[in-house]
Simulated scan of single mutants.
Amino acid sequence: MFKRFLAVLIARNYEFFRDRAALAWNLIFPILLVVGFAFIFSGDRKALYKIGVLTDIIETSNNHKVMTLKHIEFVSYDEKSFAMNKLRQHKIDLLVDFEQKTYWVNQSSSSGYITEKLLLASSPNYQRKAIEGKEIRYLDWVVPGILGMNMMFSCLFGVGYVIVRYRKNSVLKRLHATPLRPIEFLTAQVCSRLLIVMSLSSGIFIGCNLIFDFYILGSLIDLFIIALLGTVSLISLGLLIAARSESEEFTGGMLNVASWPMMMLSGVWFSLEGSPEFIQTLSQLIPLTHMLEAARSIMLDGASLWQVKSHIIALLIMTGVFLISGSLLFRWQGQAR
């Protein structure tokens, strides 16, 4: 019995180490993950308070003592209405107009109370204006990311492994003998997974909303449309990855190559604001980024579909590229042995 066990053990190890794709993935992926985190969090420690400024920060930094304080982040805003909305939602602690010598504070913000005292200590003659606003909980901000991440894994792995298994078990070979075309087969896969993912995700969102009462300013229909477009794009990406491969281990590695960077660079758990510029640029090439940014704009800022049209266009373009490329690269059978 031990000899049989040893024979299987050795054979499986040989199989793994001879699969260069799987071996390279297991060696390279952890390194890429560590390097990625190092770049994303390479900045200084997070500031204690955040103050919005309605004038140019560079021009005013030398003229106001409060600008020299450490551990305070100053953010410049061109539009007053946009900055006021940030203050109302507790995304900034104070809003200051140095030219008009006026500041605005959210009376329900404890951090706003502290930053107000810091400002008045250096500039006591500033005029105070108070506003009210409900705080956006971290739960409200992160819930689109949690659902989006779950949808991403369901779309990529739920489709990719199925296609590879069909190809490996010669199911696709049999389907190839029928008049079925690749675009028809792939479209059917998209619709099937879309129905499953949207049904489950909608049920989870509605149930959690009844319990936690999420902060929702926009239309639920608009939110559903964004989720629909994002799901189709992610499913199309999963089909593209599995278009030719017949190795489940290689496909698993490729799906991880796609899913983990999306989870880290799409703002699932944290905002990429303040990260290196090339990281933020790279994130715009990821469909999950556009789905989450559009969903958060609708939920937290009350944006309409027209206001998030750039994200919608990006999702439509990515979906078209993934689906057409997958159809062109699609292979019914595995490589001949």
Rank of each mutant, 00 (worst) to 15 (best):
A177M: 06
E248D: 06
I72M: 01
F153E: 02
P144Q: 00
K134V: 05
M262V: 03
I216A: 02
D97N: 15
R4P: 05
G218E: 06
I114R: 13
R296S: 10
Q100C: 07
M264E: 05
D301R: 15
K129S: 04
L180P: 09
I40N: 08
S109K: 01
F157E: 07
L87P: 02
F2L: 14
M264A: 14
S275E: 09
S154H: 01
K80P: 00
E293N: 10
R331C: 09
L119A: 00
L6H: 14
S297M: 04
I211W: 15
D19F: 08
W260H: 10
F2C: 06
S122D: 15
L265H: 09
G158V: 13
Y215S: 12
I211E: 09
G203R: 11
E59T: 15
I241N: 03
V268F: 07
V164F: 13
N150Y: 04
I58D: 01
N106A: 13
V34R: 07
Q89Y: 14
F37L: 14
K65S: 08
L23G: 08
S327Y: 01
L32P: 00
F212C: 11
L156F: 10
K173C: 03
H71L: 14
Q107F: 08
M84F: 07
A38R: 11
I136P: 04
L223C: 00
E246Q: 03
V53W: 02
Y77W: 10
G203A: 11
E293F: 01
D213S: 15
K50A: 11
A22S: 12
F2G: 15
R88I: 05
L288I: 12
R128H: 01
V142F: 12
P179G: 13
R165K: 12
L229R: 02
G133K: 10
I58V: 07
A258P: 08
S170F: 07
F37T: 06
Y103V: 09
Y14K: 15
T187H: 08
L120Q: 11
M152W: 09
L87A: 09
G334K: 12
S42I: 15
L139R: 05
L265Y: 13
I58G: 05
V190H: 02
S170T: 03
L316D: 01
N62V: 04
I131T: 13
E116R: 13
S81F: 04
L94C: 04
T187G: 12
T289W: 01
A11G: 14
W25P: 00
T251G: 11
F82Y: 14
A7S: 09
S297Y: 06
S199Y: 11
Q107V: 13
L180T: 14
F153K: 02
